[in-house]
Design a binder for these strands. Structure first.
Lengths: 342, 342
DNA sequence: CTGTTAGCGCCTTCAC
DNA sequence: GTGAAGGCGCTAACAG
């Protein structure tokens, strides 16, 4: 393989000139620049990443820690991953994949300078990895906000606000009994930050509005969904408004309700909290608060990059939710309250 | 950060001794070894990946090219990814993520020695990237077998054989009209190798057995599934045996058939070609030929590693399918042939 | 605008 | 069994 020296010799210049042509860190006359580029072309030269990393103390690689649990929706994870990779490439960074269960992986890539920075997905409220991150030399950004974000930068969708917006929308339509179907039990139990925040936001908003409310987790199966719906939206205490935060279930929701004899929105108004494509995937789209996976991933990378060179203070950035009406919610009428077949 | 030199000084030995303690490439007396290890511990030393890469010409990173198309099932992709990452760690390798649409990504990481080798998923029959791979200096293994595998190593599930096994199973049960529901149209059109091979294997096996057959692609929606089923398994020419190779549809299959008034296996015998967890996911599991995503991913990494140091000849390894009966197929009876309500 | 040169931190051959 | 020293290829002062 040709080295920078070979190129310099072929172009009749010094190594540093070649280096500067490549990095653009100082101005080079068009003439010599062309000489160099020609030589590079001719020799098929390309720089050695290891050598560059050693000399510059930068690897141009970002670490990305992804969850491969079965209570997370892989298609959502993939959206984040795609956003992170794409954005990283805009910063000339590659992405190294680390899995949650690779204990010590973070420590390893970080202390050996395999990566210049880290993005971590699927943070838990009291995440055990947080102490590790604190004593790292490399910038890290969490996707999700842990209870103690001290000394760490985080970015997340404002899930609590998403719940509040959803509830407020239903309340404005006159709904007074509102239910939430949330993430699978496992997500709640390990206190995935999104699961916690959706629920607390929901309960808070309902209390403020003086609405009756009920909420429960739901596993990603048809039967669990049926059970949850029966509990929440049938019977004398049935909710007339429903918030669903569970990507697994959305695709099954309409058919399942139809089977139970419930029409949307006549019998039940529904707001989904889900990635845009999930909300739009069914034949009839859902009124939804979109989880902007792409924005979150992009922001995470941007925040890491901002902190790579300069000492920027830590910050927590929450992405503001927007509710888009698509016709699955409607104002309460006396009919919708009482005319339903139970 | 502490360097190897610091460690050497602290331990009262030379740098090379420290290096050898770490690499184990020559024997060191227990005494000095312990000195060194103690010093490493005390200084919190860890080697610099870049320096190591420069000196050893090995980065200890594997590149993994993943598809993020929407006609691939992300959960299946994730299974591959998980297998690759896990296996790579067993070889002390990290995994760098490249996306299919990052044109030039392969070239870049490969020529700059960012990675020591490559694994590529989701190969097409006449994959445009193959010429690139041929002139790479680093070993590469494809998951999937292109038309012209010349000079390349590949590993894949034997999808053609999977089809044949499925058809043979149905034929042995007396089925003479057999249908195939395959991947989404997009996968077929771009000639994803798995899609092509499933179909050709299916048609070949049916011809050999003298069975009537029909096959079609199917999009991942309920309505497409209904349409496909109506075409294939209702009417006077209705198939009595069905092979389904489409991870998206499996979860909907039983309910959809029930809606159409078809019972499994009384009215219709079904074999799925799908990852084990998909075949088992529904309440009643499917008779299936399992796609061993984990084995494929593991094998791919093993093959790359084998070719990293020594010149091993290229090879194509196909993983042999096994059909597991789980009760969704049954012998044809006159009743099942004729007694059905159309 | 360009060249010279001293490292970056580790590996490995050679000498003892 | 251990040490000394050159080099891996590139970067970034420093010196013109």
């Amino acid at each position: 393989m040709a080295t920078m020296n070979d190129v310099a010799r072929a172009a009749g210049v010094s190594t540093s000139t070649v280096s500067y042509v490549l990095s653009g860190k100082r101005t080079i006359s068009a003439d010599t620049r062309n000489q160099v580029l020609a030589a590079i072309e001719k020799l098929g030269y390309s720089p050695h990443a290891g050598a560059r990393a050693l000399a510059s103390n930068r690897s141009n690689v970002l670490g990305l820690v992804v969850p491969l649990r079965d209570d997370v929706n892989v298609s959502v994870v993939m959206q984040f991953v795609a956003a992170v990779v794409t954005t990283a490439r805009n910063f000339e960074q590659d992405v190294l994949l680390l899995t949650q269960d690779d204990i010590g992986g973070i420590e390893r890539v970080t202390s050996q300078s395999v990566v210049d920075g880290l993005v971590m997905m699927d943070i838990e409220a009291r995440d055990p990895r947080i102490p590790l991150l604190a004593k790292m030399r490399k910038p890290a950004v969490l996707i999700g906000v842990p209870d103690d974000a001290h000394g760490l930068s985080c970015v997340d969708f404002d899930f609590a606000a998403a719940s509040r917006v959803s509830v407020r929308h239903l309340v404005e339509l006159g709904h007074r009994r509102i239910a939430l179907i949330g993430s699978p039990q496992a997500s709640l139990e390990r206190h995935a930050t999104y699961a916690d925040r959706v629920r607390s936001g929901f309960e808070e908003a309902c209390r403020n509005a003086g609405a009756h409310f009920a909420s429960r987790a739901c596993e990603p199966t048809s039967s669990a969904l049926v059970e949850a719906l029966q509990e929440l939206v049938t019977g004398p205490q049935a909710a007339t408004g429903l918030v669903v935060h569970n990507e697994f279930l959305i695709p099954f929701l309409r058919d399942t309700l139809a089977t139970m004899g419930l029409r949307v929105p006549e019998d039940l108004s529904i707001v989904a909290i889900a990635p845009t494509d999930v909300a739009l995937a069914s034949t009839v789209p859902w009124t939804a608060v979109s989880i902007p996976a792409h924005d979150i991933g992009r922001t995470a990378v941007e925040m890491v990059m901002e902190r790579m060179h300069s000492e920027k203070p830590t910050e927590v950035r929450l992405i503001v939710p927007t509710l888009v009406e698509r016709g699955t919610t409607v104002a309460v009428t006396s009919e919708s309250k009482d005319g339903r077949v139970h």
